[in-house]
Amino acid sequence: MSQNGAATSAVISVENAQKYFPVSKGVVVRTTIGHVKAVDGVSFEIKQGETFSLVGESGCGKTTTARMILQVEKPTAGIIKFQGNDLATLRSEQYREYRASVQAVFQDPWSSLNPRMRVGSIIMEPLLTNRKLSKGEAKEKLESLLEEVGLHSFQGDYYPHEFSGGQRQRIAIARALSLQPKLIVLDEPVSALDVSIRAQIMNLLRDLQERYGVAYLLIAHNLATVRYMSHNVGVMYLGKIVETAPTHELFTNPMHPYTKALISAALPSHPDIQREDIVLSGEIPSPLNPPSGCAFHPRCPFVLDRCSKELPVLKELKPQHEVSCHLY
């Protein structure tokens, strides 16, 4: 899979990916009455050693996008390329390699670790299925992985219930790291953890990225976490990316009204901080029947006439800063 991999440094690139879920009606005769456009034309790429974050409220399609990259969901349309190769055209051998190169860490370390397996077996399972290792090598590898994430080597014999939430998330990270992946999908990796533990895990993730050059796709709703962890951010609303920019640019110069509202709704870090007050009316509309034109127009405080008629497209307004809004 290296023939055109060298041409680009993007580990993964997603081009116009779509995922529609059919909605059906009827008990005996099931008829499809429509589609939920969970992801509707999303494009981005993640370079080696970088973190790209998808932010947005529940139902905006960020998790579905991650699931397509993990190949849990097949895209309805669009292309996902791994190191320049289209996933849909990979042969089984290459596909196995892809599966090994993309790993995930999930939100809830209480449900993502098998309670009946010892931590050592949990961490080593992906490695033993994918690589041939002697017993000695496996033991050595396990010890180095445990040490890498800040656990003691004897803790490999323990069961998950003997660990606290933060330690369990460390175990999940060790498991994801075991195959030396190119990309790790982090789906809300710290939101289930206690405040004082979150910093430990975020620092660990950043250190590992620096050491191994692994790329992260971070799914999070907490903007502070996103600002701390990522290089680039994409803001999603109803299945579309409405704004994407490097982190600093996005937070200091948000352009899309939805991004502005999200940042204005983010809780302040000091009582004296006064934000521009952008209160959105209403809630996210149903993705089954999204509004015409720009999907955000019913809630947008700056709505124009053409917003309800024409669909805006992403335009590059500044280097690497793309916004999809009729205001610009």
Partner: peptide, 24 residues
């Protein structure tokens, strides 16, 4: 003090978060 320094900030970039060692 430690808790406040360990919370990431929306309003500015922090270089490295302070992490409280151990658990409650």
């Amino acid at each position: 003090e430690a808790l406040m320094r360990s919370v990431p900030n929306v309003d500015e970039e922090v270089d490295k978060l302070y992490a409280i060692e151990g658990q409650p």
